[in-house]
Write a protein that binds this DNA or RNA. Structure first.
Lengths: 174, 174
DNA sequence: TCTAACTTTCACAACTATCTGAAAGTAGGA
DNA sequence: TCCTACTTTCAGATAGTTGTGAAAGTTAGA
């Protein structure tokens, strides 16, 4: 009788972790952070630092930094097991919640500062009423309004429960 | 009589270019590319390579590379003036069109490859029907479906004219 | 209080991305 | 054809990011 292959899903998981790490880079997220996230997202149980270090072949400092960073994003959380000193980590696994966390964070990092710049530029040139100065002012205004608008949409969607978002989207797509 | 200040809008523009460049980095776009884009977006007339080099204090190679890259994105286009050899560049200024271009490109770069990975992992583990293997498979499936769904929404929105997108959004927000 | 199990920090090393500038390539027109 | 005005390429330099590992810091409980 041939041997049963040893857990195909573990191989697939390995693949997932590696690829997700690589994707992270195209994406503005550092490789280790993406890998840790992938690892925890697919972990049946919470894991602690040394397990993660071994599994991903990374140093303690690196593991620690990226775990804190992921925790800052809200994508993983600290778990304490009673009677144990060490900290375990587990990832948020609900896809919709993950999406909302990421959307909020990206908004904060990408949109908020951009809006500041645009507002400033629009404000400074609001007196321009002819020629290229006026055109510049208009463009800043348009960009500002567009960004504000995008932020509103993002807030609205992020405030939705998964079910109502789905319903809304079905209407849009249908 | 005090001197009239020399074009406040030019100062504001300078600021915009500098800040936009800095923002680009938080954003996964390289600084020079973002600066060139900001420069052209606010240029009353098309510009040519040497002007851009001087204005941003960058080398010829750098200017050339990033201009081609922006052209590849479709965010700027080449303009030839009759009777002139050299190439001029001008940016797309319509905010909605810019948004659509960027959304499409990000989808292609960020979502398409991720989808590939997820599909692969889901496929490989579709036989798992118990324990952590099944959970893994489920998670890959969920992620896959979510990404596919996101892509559909993105396509739908990108196919809209500005006016209908606005109308749709007003309904969403109202 | 002391120890041991753990977490955090940080100077430096390794790696990656970006930029430069000079040389090579290209094409319009004399 | 050759010159000239331009564009493209690319090897090496620079700058920026991420990772390492050992030392310092923290805290629970003996």
């Amino acid at each position: 009788m041939p041997n049963k292959p040893v857990s195909t899903w573990e191989d697939s998981r390995e693949e997932f972790i590696a690829q997700w790490g690589a994707l992270g880079s195209n994406w503005g997220i550092n490789r280790t952070m993406a890998q840790i996230h992938a690892l925890l997202m697919t972990a049946p149980e919470p894991m602690y630092t040394d397990e993660i270090m071994q599994r991903l072949h990374i140093s303690r400092g690196n593991a620690n930094t990226n775990l804190r960073e992921l925790n800052g994003w809200g994508l993983i959380r600290l778990v304490v097991k009673k009677g144990e000193r060490r900290e375990y980590f587990e990832a948020e696994k609900d896809v919709w919640k993950m999406f909302i966390i990421i959307a909020k964070e990206r908004k904060r990092r990408e949109l908020d500062p951009a809006l500041g710049v645009l507002k400033g530029c629009a404000e400074q040139t609001k007196g321009e009423n002819a020629g290229p100065g006026r055109d510049f002012h208009r463009q800043m205004k348009e960009l500002q309004e567009f960004v504000e608008f995008g932020m509103k949409v993002s807030d609205t969607v992020a405030g939705m429960k998964h079910a109502s978002a789905l319903q809304w989207a079905i209407k849009l797509l249908g």
